[in-house]
């Protein structure tokens, strides 16, 4: 039995995507923990931004239910409005941003708005929030999803947050000047865009999972990278950092 949970592995995998000194749009839940782990391990100078108008060096000492909770205001590097924070995205000042989603497709487009025709949807999802802005303008988009066939689909019905659109130079054609998905971290694997098509490929399999099983749970014919790694389990230092960030054991 592994001494870490699937969610802890996802958090550590997400933390590894953050480089030292980077400015990161954090978001709630797993990414907050990932930001904390990165700060305590390999990225002590990373800065975290929150769309309500908060920038932080240290993550909050308490578990947050929303990014605007009092515990996230205390000790912030900057408490301001949404526009001073979110306009850093189009200004090209944000290295990476995390988002989740109901559906993602093989080119990394994400839907959090409508399942079915938007004029008469089968399911109304909450909407973009800041996700469309992060996807449009962060230098790297990091998506965190549960790996299910109904979530990883051939083509999303509605693009809330643009990935590589139709693939290739789809973003450039749409007028987007940078960015795009860099990694999709799921509970089974890590996918990354490869080649000229920018299609998401399987690049890393989490311990205990197989390529066949992952393909079975993907809604398109998932291609594998020339080399598929096994996701390294959390190191003792990463686990220690995670336990310090997640002192209430929420993700264990």
């Amino acid at each position: 039995m592994a001494d870490y949970s699937t969610q802890e592995l996802m958090i550590v995998a997400a933390a590894r995507e953050i480089r030292d000194g980077e400015v990161i749009f954090v978001g709630m839940r797993l990414p907050i923990a990932a930001f904390g782990v990165a700060r305590l391990t390999h990225a002590p100078n990373a800065v975290g931004l929150f769309e309500c108008g908060i920038a932080r060096y240290e993550p909050s000492a308490e578990t947050l239910y929303t990014m605007a909770d009092p515990a996230n205001q205390l000790g912030a590097a900057w408490a301001t409005g949404l526009l001073p924070m979110m306009t850093q995205l189009p200004a090209g000042r944000v290295d990476a941003g995390f988002i989740g989603g109901a559906e993602i497709d093989r080119f990394g487009n994400i839907n959090t708005s409508y399942i079915g025709d938007f004029k008469a949807p089968k399911v109304k999802l909450p909407g973009s929030g800041g996700a469309a802005d992060i996807a449009a303008s962060a230098k790297r988009l990091l998506a965190i999803m549960n790996h299910e066939k109904r979530r990883l689909v051939e083509r999303v019905g509605y693009i809330t947050s643009p990935g590589f659109l139709d693939g290739g130079d789809g973003r450039e054609k749409a007028g987007l000047v940078r960015g795009g998905p860099a990694a999709v971290i799921t509970d089974r694997a890590i996918l990354r865009p490869l080649g000229d098509s920018r299609e998401l490929h399987l690049t890393s399999v989490h311990p205990g999972h197989s390529v066949e099983e992952i393909r079975e749970h993907t809604g398109w014919a998932l291609k594998t990278a020339p080399r598929v790694d096994e996701t390294p389990p959390p190191s003792p230092a990463e686990l220690d950092a995670l336990h310090r960030v997640d002192h209430e054991g929420h993700w264990r």
């Binding site: 449009a136 809330t160 987007l176």
Partner: peptide
Amino acid sequence: PVRTLLGSDILTS
């Protein structure tokens, strides 16, 4: 004028 929403179906809906 903004550089966001490009490529998003928010421009359609």
